[in-house]
């Protein structure tokens, strides 16, 4: 059998996601270089913080002349949604404390989304690890490449800035097979859009979690009708 056919579909999808996120890593590396961050600090952000939107926000604040404290606050606020993803994934992230501590570092939007797209807990855990590790490697590779290639890539002309929302579309679509999920997604998007002009960056995404209320209402009405 050809080797390509033996690749686990979960691993294949994790690699595809990681490639897309790696492309975004290019723009993070570019931003770091433009903002005057050295390569070691840029890579430290991508390995130790390892949260794309928090990193982009923090460096973005510094690029706009903000203080380091403001940069940290923006980054943390933007990543507060990890708590919600962490609770959602808690049932599949069990095991010894050491393992839970190690796997927590791999909790990012993409690993949470690929895990949530699986139908059984074992597959979800495999998807979480595969996506987390693959993204960790390629996000850092992208950061280094972007930092080194400053001036050579035009992120916007290549359409690279739409990659992440498109990845989320691909990961969300299979979840929308019931009315409760569809209502939740619509409410979440509406909350995020409504709050964007008035709330600080990060808060709209976090508060979009309240969209779950719409899904619960729809689910209850569905049960009452049966």
């Amino acid at each position: 059998m050809p080797a390509a056919r033996a690749i686990d579909p979960i691993v294949r999808q994790a690699l595809a996601i990681a490639l897309a996120v790696g492309a975004l890593g290019l723009s993070f590396g570019l931003l770091c270089a433009d903002t005057g961050l050295g390569l070691p600090m840029s890579v430290a952000l991508s390995t130790l913080v390892f949260a794309g939107s928090a990193q982009l926000a923090a460096v973005g604040v510094v690029a706009d002349g903000g203080s380091a404290l403001a940069a940290v606050a923006a980054g943390l606020l933007l990543n507060a949604r990890s708590v919600a993803f962490g609770v959602a994934l808690a049932p599949i992230l069990g095991g010894r404390l050491g393992r839970r501590l190690a796997e927590s570092h791999l909790l990012i939007d993409e690993s949470a989304a690929l895990a949530a797209a699986q139908s059984d807990p074992a597959a979800a855990r495999r998807a979480f690890r595969a996506a987390g590790l693959a993204v960790l490697v390629l996000w850092n590779a992208g950061t280094v490449a972007g930092w080194l290639l400053t001036g050579a890539i035009d992120v916007e002309a290549a359409g690279l800035d739409v990659v992440i929302p498109a990845v989320f579309v691909a990961l969300l679509a299979p979840r929308l097979d019931d009315a409760a999920s569809r209502a939740t997604a619509l409410a979440g998007a509406a909350i995020a859009l409504a709050l964007t002009p008035v709330a600080p960056a990060g808060l709209p995404i976090l508060l979009a979690a309240a969209g779950v209320g719409a899904g619960l209402l729809v689910a209850r009405r569905g049960e009452a009708a049966v």
Partner: peptide
């Protein structure tokens, strides 16, 4: 339901 709400918010944003 949480992932659906957060992913849709990220897409909209």
């Amino acid at each position: 339901l949480l992932p659906a709400a957060l992913l849709a918010a990220l897409i909209a944003a």
